[in-house]
Computed example of a mutant assay.
Amino acid sequence: MYSLADYITAFIISLTVSIIVTPFVMKFARRFGFIDHPNYRKVHSRVMPRLGGASIVIGTLSGLLYLHELIIHLWPMIIGASIILLVGTLDDKYTLNAKTKFIGQLSASCIVSLSGITIDFITLPFSSERIYLGIFSYILTIVWIVGITNSINLIDGLDGLASGVSIIAMTSILCLATLNSQFLIISLTTILIGSTLGFLIYNFYPAKIFMGDTGSLFLGYCISIISLLGLYKSVTIFSLVIPIIVLAIPIFDTFFAILRRLLNKQKILDPDKSHLHHRLLQLGFSHKQTVLIIYAIGTFFGISAIIFSRSTLWGSFIFVVFLTFTIQITAELIGLIGKHQPLLTMFKKLKD
């Protein structure tokens, strides 16, 4: 077990290395063609270097080398992360199709699941009765890892959005892990927050570099793993909801994206321009305002998750119902205003 001084040192190392390395990654990306070109679906209007996720990875590895005793516990996750990084790097260079990226994510999640990191049973509320999941424990683990990995990837549409939302989510997980003395999670989140924060300095609006799929897939994968470790082996029905609340923005944005594409008879993996950040831009908010609004929403859900974890069972139930209605109503209002031009014009006038 490491001391507080060790955690602070690991954070500073990962932060500093990420800050120092990012300019070199920018030069490397430009020289070797890791470039993001503008198109109809993207918000940026000029050619930008990507592969910025390499800075996050290098910063994370630096912090991990300092807290080297963790490595022996992380081999399945490290192997899975290597596959994720390979897929992300190839996509940043050659723009892989969605099916190829999905196969890579599935492979990485299978390695983690087969290593034994699964949720084996669920304890029912008001009872000590356990429901053993059997083969479904592997399926649940794989679905969770692939789902969260993709959700972070899908919200990476504005400068600093995915990196900022990831930092907020990981900070919330860090607080929950501290309250529950989960030292492995504390170590991992400390390192990841430091490396991502160092990169965010260059990625916040106006960005000098994009994280690309190297970064968004890596962050999504890591967040899915550390949130899964918090549930390791067994959960109650209500504790299962906690990581969902922490990651409410990417999870619900992905859920509505899938639902929207199914209703429009589109392929689920096809990209579109109707995510939450696109909706807010359509309402007339600036690029920077949109990112800050989503940061605020993410912070709200992070704090909510911490409160949820400390509340009673009935309090938790009421809290979940309230949050569910809040999410649904907000999404419907944004969609309604975005679709109706008179309402959109009125909103912009009120905003101005």
Rank of each mutant, 00 (worst) to 15 (best):
H44A: 07
R46P: 06
M48L: 12
P49Y: 02
G52F: 04
G53C: 05
G53E: 03
A54H: 08
V57L: 13
I58L: 11
I58F: 08
L61Y: 03
L61T: 06
L64S: 05
Y66Q: 01
Y66P: 01
Y66V: 07
L67V: 07
L67P: 03
H68M: 14
H68V: 11
E69I: 08
I71Y: 00
I71H: 06
L74V: 03
W75Q: 06
P76L: 04
P76T: 06
M77D: 04
M77K: 06
I78Y: 02
I79F: 13
I79N: 09
I79M: 10
G80A: 09
A81M: 14
S82M: 10
I83W: 01
I83S: 01
V87T: 07
V87L: 06
G88W: 01
T89L: 10
T89M: 04
T89R: 04
L90P: 05
D91K: 04
D91L: 00
T95G: 00
L96E: 09
N97V: 00
K99E: 12
K99I: 11
T100R: 13
T100V: 13
F102K: 06
G104L: 01
Q105G: 12
Q105D: 14
S107Q: 12
G116V: 14
G116Y: 03
I117F: 15
T118V: 15
I119Y: 03
D120A: 07
F121C: 13
F121N: 14
F126G: 08
S127E: 07
E129A: 15
R130Q: 14
Y132L: 15
Y132S: 13
L133Y: 03
G134S: 05
G134C: 06
I135S: 15
I135M: 14
I135G: 14
F136W: 09
Y138N: 11
Y138G: 01
I139A: 14
I139D: 09
I139L: 15
L140V: 12
V143N: 15
W144G: 03
W144H: 04
I145S: 12
V146S: 09
I148C: 02
T149A: 08
T149I: 01
I152L: 15
I152G: 09
D156K: 00
L158C: 12
L158H: 12
L158R: 14
D159T: 13
G160Q: 04
G160S: 11
L161A: 11
A162F: 00
A162L: 10
G164D: 07
V165E: 04
V165M: 06
S166T: 03
S166H: 11
I167D: 02
A169Y: 02
A169P: 07
T171I: 04
S172N: 13
I173G: 12
L176W: 03
L176V: 10
L176A: 08
